[in-house]
Amino acid sequence: MTAEAGTTMRLAEHHSTSAHPGERGERLGLAHRDEIRSTVALYRAFYRELGIPVEQETSIAAACHAALAGWYPVLAEEIGAVAAAAGLEPAALMAVTARTEILAIANPQREGECSTAVLLPPDRGGATAAPETIQTWDWHESLVPAALLWEYPSVQGLRVKTFTEFGAPAKIGVNDAGLGVHFNILHHRADHGRGGVPVHAVARRILDEARTVGEAVAIARSAEVSASTVITVVTSEPGAVSIEICPAGVAEVHAGQPGGVPAAADAGSGAAVLLHTNHFLDPGLAAGEHTPDASTTYARLEHLRARAGELAGQDAVRRAQAMCGPAGDAAPICFQPDRALPPQEQWTTLLTVSLDLGGYGLEYAAGSPAVMARGAERF
């Protein structure tokens, strides 16, 4: 099945009513026990295929769990409850929660994950619209036969909706304060195998607590991590920043900087655009870039820059179509698996998603932007 025809990934929905981390985690673990156990098993087999010994995996998972318990104990409690309800030890569930940290010790794969675009509409006489966003999520289809759309109340009093993998606390999402996050992996020479706060937990805490860009940046800066990522935070204020996070430090990239370009003049929107793929844009952190030269991350960013002027002022479906452009599903942002390669080397655009910040929702399609161009679902 090609990306144009959609993916085989099944999306399950779960709506939590309890803000208590133990109760919420237990109910999630009971409701999706099979999917959680399957995802853990698939990731642990994947690590063996990459040559990561089980001893290193478990050591990193344990170190990440300890770091999380010190940094965000509420989430550590939830993870423990999910694991127990699913019949797993917390360290086993951390094989997914800390997947970025475990993968950091392997040679970076020749490809990356995800292309993100955020459009900040101009101020028109004091009236500003919320940012418009879109992201692809590219990964190995064999690792994610099913994924989760999860709504829950946070301990801090916000309601959150997130797309994530079973066993990961959050990935792409929005809260009812009008703040949302997009998520892209990065690789830096400072990444290491000693463990740290999982980057998926950083995204989760931002969704749980933050109402402003400044609060999100403060949360990101407070975490000691062992792997790299970029969390693009957008708010209905409007505001946006790509927070590049790695063990060497944290940097902020704003529209108009290396990752941001003005909308094309003929678009007539005047929107500022913040773009990110899978390499560092901050000049200081970019000096330690560890993404393979063979990656398409640079070509995908150039494609987004070329399409930026067509993205603003569109609904989610038309934005997806504009993101592809005339190339359609042959655009570099649309991954289609090469079935001649081993499953762990096949890349697929598994999801395309836009954040509705004002309406507290995710608009999405299971597949590439070319699939979403034919219609989107809402969560």
Rank of each mutant, 00 (worst) to 15 (best):
A3V: 08
A3Q: 06
A3E: 07
T7M: 00
L11Y: 13
E13S: 15
H14R: 05
H15C: 12
S18H: 10
S18T: 08
H20S: 11
P21L: 08
P21S: 00
P21N: 00
G25C: 04
E26D: 13
R27P: 03
L28F: 09
G29N: 00
A31F: 04
A31S: 13
E35L: 12
R44T: 10
F46G: 00
Y47N: 04
Y47A: 03
R48Y: 06
I52W: 03
V54K: 15
S59I: 02
I60A: 06
H65W: 13
A66L: 10
A66H: 12
A66S: 15
V74E: 11
L75A: 05
E78H: 01
A81E: 02
G87S: 05
E89H: 09
A92H: 09
T100S: 14
I105G: 00
I105R: 02
N107W: 04
N107V: 14
P108H: 08
R110D: 12
E113T: 13
S115V: 06
A117R: 05
P122M: 08
G125H: 06
G125I: 07
G126Y: 06
A129I: 01
T133S: 14
Q135E: 14
V144Q: 04
W150F: 14
Y152A: 05
Y152R: 09
S154N: 10
L158H: 12
R159G: 08
V160N: 02
F163S: 09
E165W: 11
A170H: 00
A170Q: 02
K171I: 02
I172K: 01
G178I: 01
N184Y: 00
L186V: 05
G193E: 03
G193V: 05
V202P: 04
V213W: 01
G214I: 11
V217F: 05
R221S: 09
E224G: 13
E237R: 11
G239W: 01
G239A: 14
A240N: 06
E244Y: 03
I245H: 01
C246E: 05
A248D: 12
A248T: 07
G249M: 06
V250H: 07
H254K: 12
A255P: 03
A255V: 04
G256Y: 08
Q257A: 14
P258F: 05
G259Q: 03
A263K: 04
A264L: 10
A264H: 15
G268D: 08
G270F: 05
A271E: 11
L275K: 01
F280A: 03
H290P: 00
D293H: 13
S295F: 00
T297E: 06
T297H: 09
Y298V: 14
A299S: 13
E302Y: 07
H303K: 06
L304N: 05
L304V: 04
A306Y: 00
Q314C: 12
Q321S: 15
G325R: 07
A331W: 00
C334D: 10
F335C: 12
R339W: 11
R339K: 13
P342Q: 08
P342S: 09
Q344P: 08
E345A: 14
Q346W: 09
T352A: 02
V353L: 14
D356N: 11
G358T: 11
L362Q: 04
L362W: 04
A365S: 08
A365Y: 00
A365C: 10
A366F: 03
G367V: 05
R374D: 10
G375I: 07
G375T: 03
E377D: 13
E377H: 12
R378E: 07
